[in-house]
Design a protein around this nucleic acid. Structure first.
Lengths: 208, 208, 208, 208
DNA sequence: AATGAATGAGAGTTCATTCAT
DNA sequence: CATGAATGAACTCTCATTCAT
């Protein structure tokens, strides 16, 4: 017998639940947001939600996973079109300059960072998150930096591992501050300055 | 009528409860840590804790306040002894290089950052935290940078506001990553690199 | 989407909880009766009770409101059928003579009076209760007395306001004593005597 | 060795604690008033209070007992000076007319009535209270009424038992309403009317 | 006698999850 | 598949009472 509802239908529902959950989590944080908040936000019933996810934690996990995947896919997509390491690195910072700094985004950042801290307290989750960070995020930037060094665009004694780690740290820290302070925070100026600093650092300390 | 226990006794008790709470919060996070966890950690009774603090939230607030104050006092103390802006800035980074990267410190960082995010969701708290960040943390660094510019140690077109904000962002982001990843994370190397980058940036882009 | 249970079902549940609560409150008083007592009495779970009422106080309030409404409706219904003021007044006292003096009723009276005192300590509640007393209870009796005066059944210099207030006071006081003393208390004889006294008083002091 | 503090001292302290407790109970009711409220009201320490009373319930009991005894003593004292039954009965009502209707008195009434209801729920207490009511309060009035009948002041077929019970009921009910409603309640007019009614009833229904 | 910090049983309430309909 | 009433463990907080000082 054919399934009563199509896979697309189910996928759409899941996505809807995840979107609603993100709003709820953004408003109050994961712990304080209740299933009833998600019910209210989504317009679905409690039972419906539990048909698609096995627990509140499961929603959280899947939500974070998807956002991370979208994020990574976006980054990779943008890198693909560029030729040189410099172009790629410029594109990297450009992404952050182009982010629409809406309250929604601000809240989403809060959820992300909260999840990141949360995962530090759960061995299993920590392993997954650390691995992903190492394999995907840091590697992505490292490869660009290494490419720059190999192509003699960047100075040979720069350490791609540390620089990429530092850049990711700065980005997360900047997002963290923005997520608390909001529009009074000089998010873009800071990203611009970070870009300058990094380029100055990798290009033998030459002025831009 | 003279009090039966001294103020020092009460202060010691409060500190003991706060220390125990920090452990409990570090282990599970603020929401998941229960009063019973604090009871177990501290060896006191539930009632005793409520004799000193009016709620779990109150413990959290006072804990964060104290840690922040200690932090600020420590920073200021260290700056006081130094003469030039460069020396002060070097001292600033040195502090972070000298931190003992224990599991305890790692957990404390988690609690701190969690609180920072938490405060972004509460208007009142957000105001307090943002004000403190602006007035204390950022100003501290800005003044050193401005001093360096005025003394012609640093280049005149550097923006102290943005640089200090960026540095704090980087530090918080680095701490965030460390708090999740732990000892595999190149915390010190990164701090060293940050120092290099910043000096290179403020000193007309000269190589170190 | 149609609700899974009917409104009647929910109404029945609410009534069941209120009935169980009345028993629990009657047994120990509002403060001393616990939610667990209501749980035990009702056979429901704690959560179920909180699905229908938002707090213990809410149960108390709704319970008292309903009982009052039933009470008033009953009084009005009985008055409606009678023609003369004397008949109405006789009917009024008859009601109290016909009450089944069960332990249940005795307990209910205790809860009622406790609530009445309770409301004197809460400004908001006091306003509501005083208003209801004035507008409903006292007015009901006053109108009958005024009617009797207008129809020359009762002496013209009787003060309906004071008499009705006095009668209600006597009834509540008698109920109060009965609720404590129980079956040894001459509830009916007293009501009979009150009736005699009142009629003697309003009918120019003639003997019955 | 002589006791360190005199009996008078201890008696004074006890009285002070009872007075403070009455205020606390009047404000919030017995259950809701805490030992800390009594501490705050009395200016004594917790330990001091427990030196004089063995529990909160004990304070309540002794408080009510004293107030009752004062009450009875006052009534008897006033009766003693009067000659005829009519004079005594007039004096009885006069007492209530002369009460100073202060907020304090209003609150005290609340405590008294609350205690009365409370005692209905405790077999031991109920026995004591019922006995006292029968032996003292009701008997006091009954004796006056019987005296009036014997002296041919009142009609011979009046039932002293029922009348006295009814009068006490009316007084308690009137006090109950006053304790909730306060100064808008026609306490004195009602007492006056009660007096009229009773005299009319016992004097063969003659108009005053 | 007096103090008030300490105790801990027990209160009201919440909410993730289940399951009969 | 959808519904939302029902569940009950677990939470935070209170407060009468004790007892070392």
């Amino acid at each position: 017998m054919a399934p009563i509802v199509s896979e697309e239908y189910k996928e759409k529902k899941k996505r809807h639940i995840l979107d609603s959950s993100l709003k709820a989590f953004g408003e109050k944080g994961f712990q304080l947001a209740t299933i009833d908040d998600i019910v209210a936000e989504s317009g679905l019933s409690k039972g419906a939600i539990y048909n698609y996810f096995k627990s509140k934690e499961d929603i959280y996990l899947q939500l974070m996973q998807r956002k991370t995947e979208e994020n990574i896919a976006g980054l990779k997509e943008r890198f693909r079109k560029k030729e040189t390491a410099e172009e790629k690195l410029r594109q990297f910072f450009k992404n952050y300059l182009e982010i629409k700094l809406s309250p929604d985004w601000q809240r989403m950042i809060g959820v992300h960072l909260e999840f990141w801290i949360h995962s530090g307290r759960d061995e299993e989750l920590k392993r997954v998150m650390t691995a992903r960070y190492e394999e995907v995020y840091r590697t992505l930037l490292m490869e660009v930096l290494q490419e720059g060094i190999d192509q003699l665009e960047f100075r040979p004694d720069a350490d791609p591992a540390i620089i990429s780690s530092l850049v990711w740290g700065t980005i997360d820290g900047t997002c963290l501050h923005y997520s608390v302070i909001g529009n009074d925070y000089p998010f873009r100026e800071q990203m611009k300055t970070l870009e300058e600093m990094v380029f100055m650092y990798v290009r033998k300390g030459e002025r831009e």
